[in-house]
Design a protein around this nucleic acid. Structure first.
Length: 259
DNA sequence: TCAGTTGTTTATAT
DNA sequence: AATATAAACAACTG
């Protein structure tokens, strides 16, 4: 499920335990999660190095050491976590890095993305390169600048990590719904007020979601409604529209009219 | 058996 | 050139 709030939750959790820990060994249980190196290369590169504070950009999690940096992209099902050595392993635990105290693990059911090894800052940049500014620290002027001058539709643009990094399917549907803007609108047709509303709504939705470590299914949120058998708008009760083109989009035809 | 899944990339079409 | 669409990646659920 990971979007920005989930990844920020992973980062927060690891930040409590990982800094200062030294990697002693690597246990690759499924090399399919390694995207740019072999198991042997990872082991050789990482062993003996001490982790520092985890960073995040968009949906990327950066795990720097005093040597190389591990780059984690969770795809739809990945989850990096810290645990005690004696904790039971699950089938989807693909990688275990043994530390001088505890273990860093990466669990992933579907393995759509995975883990990259970056030997220096340049390699980090190269791997996560064409990424827009992080959604959490994006200021309003930049937001306007990024979304001006394009005829693209709102949702695919917000979904594009090269424009803004961190927003995913759930977040974007939630933001568009709370801001009462139809996700299929072309950006050229949006008025200044609508764009301002999208920005302030994005800030609010992100702040709340980051606090929860996920996009929460709160009582008055679209995210709760979309999981129900007969999804209705929490604001006006209208039956929600469900569009499947690529990712599934939910919106309220009454609160978010097409033009 | 088949459709569906919260991410991203690539190829193809308009 | 810019934009849109579909498929592919992998694995599991209902």
């Amino acid at each position: 499920m990971p979007e920005l709030p989930d990844v920020e939750g992973f980062r927060r959790e690891l930040a409590r335990r990982l800094p200062g820990k030294r990697a002693h060994g690597v246990d690759i249980r499924d090399a399919g999660v390694l995207r740019n190196c072999s198991a042997r290369q990872l082991e050789r590169a990482v062993r003996g190095h001490r982790f520092s504070t985890p960073q995040r950009h968009g949906k990327w999690l950066l795990l720097p050491t005093d040597g190389p940096t591990l780059l984690v992209h969770s795809g739809m099902t990945g989850r990096p976590y810290y645990t005690r050595v004696d904790a039971a392993t699950a089938r989807d635990d693909r990688l275990i890095i043994r530390l001088d105290r505890g273990e860093l693990r990466y669990a992933d059911q579907r393995k759509l993305r995975g883990i990259w090894l970056a030997r220096d800052a340049a390699a980090v940049k190269q791997t996560i390169c064409p990424l827009g500014p992080d959604a959490l620290t994006l200021d309003r002027d930049t937001f306007f600048e990024l979304l001006r001058d394009t005829r693209r539709r709102l949702k695919p643009t917000l979904l594009d990590q090269r424009v803004i990094a961190g927003l995913g399917n759930l977040l974007i549907d939630e933001i568009c719904w709370q801001a009462r803007v139809n996700p299929h609108r072309s950006l050229t047709d949006l008025e200044g007020g609508e764009l301002r509303r999208l920005y302030t709504t994005m800030r609010r939705v992100l702040r709340t979601s980051v606090r929860h470590g996920r996009v929460p299914a709160l009582r008055n949120w679209l995210t709760r409604a979309r999981d129900q058998p007969q999804p209705c708008c929490p604001r006006c009760g209208t039956r929600l529209r469900r569009v499947t083109a690529g990712r599934t989009t939910f919106y309220c035809p009454r609160c978010q009219p097409a033009r």
